[in-house]
Nucleic acid binder design. Structure first.
Lengths: 138, 138
DNA sequence: CGATTAATGCACTTCCATTGCATTGATGTC
DNA sequence: GACATCAATGCAATGGAAGTGCATTAATCG
C-alpha cells in the first residue's frame, strides 16, 4: 500500500484511484490549484467526480481552499497536523501577480489582529499579492 | 447640484441617474454589497448597466472590490483620500459568518508582513471572519 | 441645430458550481 | 462465493454570475 493510501485511510477517506491521483497531483505541485487546473491533468476524468473529490478532501481536512481574490478558489494540501476545521493553521497565502500561482507560506503565521469592541474572530484569511521568487528574477 | 454629483464630477465621472443611485445606495448601507444585492434595490435597472457602473467606479477610485472568500466580490466606497490604485489604503475587512455582511474596518491598518527572501509585496488583502457587533449580542 | 461621444438596455455567450439520477464498484454478511 | 448495502462515479442538466457585441438613447460640444 502506498503512503498516500495509508494517509487517506488514516483520514477516514477511502483511497480510490481518483483520490490518489488528485492527492498526488496536489502533493507534486507546490502551488495551489483550481478545479479546472486539476481537471486538465486527467484526460478521462469527469468534472463532477473531481469536484466531489475535493469536497470530500475539504471535509476531512486534507485540503483547504484558498480564495486569492481571483474569483475561482484554489486548493492546497493542508499541513501535517493542521486541523483546518478548527482554524489552527492560520498561515498566509501568497499570490503572484505575474505567474498567477498561489502558494501557502506555512512558516509565516498571521499576526494577532485587533478588532473593534464587540467583534469576535473565528478565522483569518491573509493574501499577499506581489511577485514570487521565480518571477522576481525576470 | 447634490453632494454626490459634485463628488462624481470631481472624480471625473459623469453623474448619471444610475451612478447617483448606486453611489447613494453604497453610502447608505454600511456594509459592502454584491452586484446582485445592488441589483435587487433597483426594480427597473439592467444588470449590465450596474455592472459597468461598478467597473467605472472601480476604475476611477470610487469603490473598491472586497473578496471576502465567498466567491462573489462585494463593493464598498473608498475612503476619502484613498488612492486605491496605489494601494495606499490597506485596511482590513471583516466578514460576519452569521449575517454575512462584510464591512471595511478602515481604522485598522494591516500590519507589516514579512515574506521570504525574493518575494515582493504589491498588495495585501486581509479578511477576518467572525461575528460582528450586531450578531454578537444575539 | 447637427455631429460626436458616452451611457444604457437587450441579447447572447461562457464559465464554473452544484444537483439528480442511474450505474458501477467496493465492502461486509451469511 | 453470492448477495445486500452503501459509497463512488459518470452523465445530463440547472443555475448564477461575469463578460461582450451591438443597437438605441442621452448628453455634450461646436
Amino acid at each position: 500500500m502506498s503512503e498516500i493510501e495509508i494517509f487517506l485511510i488514516a483520514k477516514k477517506v477511502r483511497p480510490t484511484a481518483m483520490r490518489i491521483l488528485v492527492f498526488r497531483s496536489l502533493a507534486n505541485k507546490r502551488a495551489a490549484m483550481t478545479l479546472s487546473e486539476l481537471e486538465a491533468l486527467f484526460e478521462k476524468s469527469d468534472r463532477t467526480t473531481l469536484y466531489r473529490t475535493i469536497k470530500t478532501f475539504e471535509e476531512y481536512g486534507i485540503v483547504h481552499p484558498i480564495h486569492d481574490g481571483n474569483g475561482i478558489p484554489k486548493y492546497a494540501l493542508c499541513e501535517e497536523g493542521c486541523d483546518c476545521a478548527a482554524h489552527n493553521d492560520l498561515h498566509l497565502h501568497f499570490h503572484c501577480n505575474q505567474c498567477e500561482e498561489t502558494v501557502c507560506l506555512t512558516d509565516h503565521k498571521i499576526p494577532q489582529i485587533n478588532l473593534p469592541r464587540g467583534y469576535t474572530t473565528e478565522d483569518v484569511n491573509l493574501i499577499v499579492n506581489g511577485k514570487c521568487v521565480k518571477c522576481s528574477s525576470d
